[in-house]
Design a protein around this nucleic acid. Structure first.
Lengths: 165, 165
DNA sequence: CTGATTGCAAATGCTTTGCACGCCA
DNA sequence: TGGCGTGCAAAGCATTTGCAATCAG
């Protein structure tokens, strides 16, 4: 876990008069152990591997804290559960592209987007605080060659492709 | 209800071998009776005013159809329920700005956004299909003058301001 | 007629909560 | 010691679904 995160966390804990507990630490270190997105349930399972005594409730409660501290971002990837993104600390203004063919999620940054948001928002009389851009697209390689490495990987891993919506 | 919508709907019904029923028609005409966003529950109540016999299940099932037909768009405004937007037929690529002060949702269009999405997406090897940009901002007028007409209106109408997330 | 559609109530699935106990500061 | 934090199970909520009855074409 990145030092900047630890620092911001400490500051948050201090400011809110919270306490550091074994369970809380376990959840937090699992949350930031990879840079992959995860759902509450996935994190719960990941935590349980090392700390089988942490309850689901604590995972949910800690997630709420982390989102409030802005260490984690809750994003909507179109499934019926909240997805959490641990990468906003390093890349504060990245966005997501979802492949409708294989469900892959690509994070990307683009300097123009911030500028654009700023213009649009001010024009309307608001001050921009946060923006979420989600692009859905289809895989060009799949269309042209009939094959897409991600699609194949997704099938092999048994990952559910995408649902409706 | 706009003629273009009726037309697209008929085409959809024909293509899928669906049937036209009183309940379905009631739900659909309520959905497009205003250009306001709504939740399933809100639509259910609106429908019941004129057709007290329509069930909640039918409302949900019809909403699914309308989204599939791309007549309605399911959007995520940060509450824990899906919001439906009936304005995508007229403004296919508009986006949403949410005021964190009063919860107001402003729809806006900007020509640059489509271009930007296109560039970003192709650069990553995908073909853009649909994008969702949600900007959250605070009200400048409120900050400067301490008053915002929308905030006051929202309070008066008892509309819940925003929840977490 | 026949399969699509409906209402009802039960089921789902994610997330939150009430409560009594335990533990950090 | 005073509360904050925890686990458990129950509760909440939005949404979906099984089923028998009903209706459109």
């Amino acid at each position: 876990m990145d030092a900047g995160i630890r620092e911001r966390l400490d500051e948050f804990i201090r400011r809110k008069g919270l306490r550091r507990t074994t369970q809380r630490d376990a959840v937090i270190s699992s949350a930031f152990s990879k840079d992959e997105h995860f759902t509450a349930e996935e994190l719960y399972e990941r935590v349980r591997k090392k700390h089988p005594d942490v309850s689901r409730a604590t995972v949910y409660r800690t997630l709420l804290l982390l989102v409030e501290a802005d260490l984690l971002r809750a994003i909507d990837l179109g499934e019926n559960q909240t997805t959490y993104d641990p990468n906003f600390h390093d890349k504060p203004s990245h966005n997501h592209l979802l492949c409708i063919d294989c469900g892959r999620v690509v994070e990307f940054e683009d300097a123009h987007i911030d500028l654009l948001n700023d213009c649009v928002t001010r024009r309307l009389g608001f001050k921009p605080l946060r923006q979420t851009l989600k692009i859905e697209g289809s895989c060009e390689q799949l269309r042209r060659t009939g094959r897409c490495p991600n699609l194949i990987a997704a099938r092999l891993s048994g990952k559910r492709l995408r649902k409706k919506r």
